[in-house]
């Protein structure tokens, strides 16, 4: 296993010249980026620019046609990849929450540690309760997803992902489906995580939020990274005309 050679001073996630097509439509045309441990990066850009596809490639939900992605030194897109091992390291939160509707909030959070990580029920439950408290949903342990608001469901989804104790978290437009008044509670949760040192890769349309928490911003358009930099430089001193146009439209 190549990840024996990996040390924390190397990029936790490294993406090199990734190309991805759906049929004849090429959505990623050579994308490269590195994420160090503890770093928070935001990927922004217009719809259809390949942001979500890119982060879905990181935990092998999508395959790629060319290039390489490594997580802790382990190549993701090879035949001999142990997908389950990869996904234990990479947590993911979706736009549509995708909680399991037939399970309570607590069960949603504690099920994977029991079934996948083979933890004892008591241990998993203790962790799950702590995580639900951490996302500020104590008291909602017994509620089914259908009984929770969008923002609450999304926070359960974050707790569910954290219960696997991942090394990096992927957030795929997690606030895009939420009511405006519940967006903030989810963002606060993510911010807490980022401040605790969790490595986070976010696809987001929340520019203010990106500016506040990101260490590095990547702007993608039509399958390529047009521009990237620390938030201050990126937002105040964009160089590329496409970036400028995008920022002028949304800021």
């Amino acid at each position: 296993m190549p990840n024996d050679n990996w040390t924390p001073d190397q990029p936790l996630v490294s993406i090199k010249d990734v190309r991805k097509s759906f049929g004849s439509l090429e959505v990623l045309k050579g994308v490269s980026l590195d994420v160090m441990k503890g770093e928070v990066i935001c990927i922004i850009g217009p719809s259809g620019s390949g942001k979500s596809t890119l982060i879905r490639c990181i935990n092998a939900l999508n395959d790629i046609q060319a290039g390489s992605i490594t997580v802790e030194g382990q190549e993701v897109h090879t035949e001999k990849l142990d997908k389950l091992e990869l996904r234990k390291k990479v947590g993911m939160v979706f736009q549509q929450y995708n909680l399991f509707p037939h399970k309570t909030a607590l069960e949603n959070v504690m099920m994977a540690p029991i079934k996948v990580l083979r933890k004892s029920k008591a241990e998993a439950e203790q962790t799950a309760r702590a995580l639900i408290k951490k996302v500020r949903l104590d008291g909602k342990e017994g509620a089914y997803p259908g009984e929770l608001s969008g923002g609450q469901q999304q926070r359960v989804a974050i707790a569910r992902s954290l219960a696997m104790n991942p090394d990096v978290m992927l957030f795929d437009e997690v606030t895009a489906a939420l009511d405006p008044e519940t967006v903030k509670e989810v963002l606060v949760t993510i911010k807490d995580l980022a401040q605790e040192g969790m490595t986070c890769i976010l696809v987001t349309h929340e520019m203010g939020f990106a500016r506040e928490i990101a260490d590095h911003i990547y702007f993608t358009d039509r399958g390529v990274i047009v521009e990237h930099g620390p938030p201050a430089t990126f937002f105040d001193n964009a160089q590329d005309p496409r970036t400028k146009e995008f920022l002028s439209q949304i800021l």
Partner: peptide, 18 residues
């Protein structure tokens, strides 16, 4: 069943059978 359920389970490292 929406495909998001499969994806969510996959990303939590459940095997296909699970």
């Amino acid at each position: 069943v929406p495909s998001g359920q499969w994806e969510a389970a996959e990303s939590l490292a459940y095997s296909r059978r699970q």
